[in-house]
Design a protein around this nucleic acid. Structure first.
Lengths: 205, 205
DNA sequence: CGATTATGAAACGGTGCCGTTGCGTATCGG
DNA sequence: CCGATACGCAACGGCACCGTTTCATAATCG
């Protein structure tokens, strides 16, 4: 009985359908502004509408508040790299950090990371969404790499995977943040090697 | 920057002197608001004046813009703990991370850290000030601890001190950020031990 | 005392954004 | 074509701040 091809199966609600293009450009404008360093709280609906070439009405019709819009915008971010786990664990880890380093070069990524980090208290749903979209998938992939290494014996059998992940990612973010802008190209290698060796002297290698 | 400032030797500039008490309460109100999660850009002079029980005039007379005020406010933050380097290097490092962990419990510290982290692009002077006041002193202390360990042989002689610091601090911050609010009490020990051991298997200990 | 400067309070005009409404037009189903 | 809905646009009244000014009062000098 449903003559339209709406995916949901629900009847099409008569009248002019909402423009997918408008929706996309609204979300794009939102990410755009966030990427320019505008914080969530300073982000105004009017600036989004203007940037997207859209009436405010069109935005208010779809989202009842700003946070919902930003959540949906974040949802369009794809975890861009699944990491091609090819060689040794060391190489995979270096590749992983290199991806982080590369992304940090783009202002857009950097700003969105900042938002996720600092607005986590005031906008918990946002932080949760970001974690679910950007953090968790990667965590899972790298955790698999680490476990693989533990199986083959390249890594300690009793390694704490979450701790190892935190050491690597944390160091990368930390150094990038406090290292006067641009980080040296060999940073990923150095972090991984230092983490693999540990701080204590090694009796024999 | 503060426009007042007659050094002790200089002649008193006739008329009613500026109230030290007002100045303190302005700065206190500023830190107060920042500690409640208000970001620098949303921080309004009027809210500060109201909170401090002070006229806007009194603020504008001393600081020409908001950033200067915030910089001065940050300048009153003291690096609260110089770290009692007593026992083994391991213990000192655990103590260091415990201090970070403890501070992270207070909302005020957390918010100010967030500001330092995420506003570093839009307010470089602020970030610089924070780094100079809060990050650098501790970095120096812990770096000394690490170097001491390298001398005594508790740590590898070829350890990269900056990298080690980044691994420890980064992991602490990372785990605190992504671990649903409260971090387990033994986190510092676990981070330090994992970092000391390294990820690779150890032939014999 | 009088000169001088600071203070808190209030009001100023200006701006940017809020969320809503009305308008004329565009795009769908029937 | 008709009814319904969405569109972009412009305007609304309202609010929060901005940075400045005015004012009566308070503190310190000579």
């Amino acid at each position: 009985m449903n003559t339209q091809q709406t995916a949901e199966g629900a009847a099409r609600p008569a009248g002019r359908p909402r423009s997918e293009k408008a929706e996309r450009s609204i979300i794009e404008a939102t990410l755009d502004l966030l990427g320019e360093g505008i914080g969530v709280s300073e982000l105004s609906i009017e600036s989004i509408a203007s940037r997207a070439g859209v009436g405010k009405t069109t935005i208010y019709r779809r989202w009842s508040n700003k946070e919902d819009l930003v959540v949906d915008a974040l949802a369009t971010l794809k975890p861009p790299i699944p990491l091609p786990q090819g060689g040794t664990v060391r190489d995979d880890l270096v590749t992983y950090l290199r991806v982080i380093q590369e992304e940090t070069r783009h202002a857009r990524t950097r700003c969105i990371m900042n938002i996720a980090m600092s607005d986590s208290e005031r906008h918990p749903r946002l932080a949760e969404r970001f974690r679910e979209l950007a953090v968790e998938p990667r965590r899972a992939v790298v955790a698999a790499v680490l476990r693989h290494g533990m199986d083959t014996g390249e890594l300690r059998a009793d390694l704490d995977v979450d701790m190892a992940l935190a050491l690597l990612s944390g160091a990368m973010v930390w150094l990038t943040k406090w290292s006067d802008g641009h980080s040296p190209a060999d940073l990923p290698e150095r972090i991984v090697d230092e983490a693999l060796k540990g701080f204590r002297p090694r009796p024999a290698e």
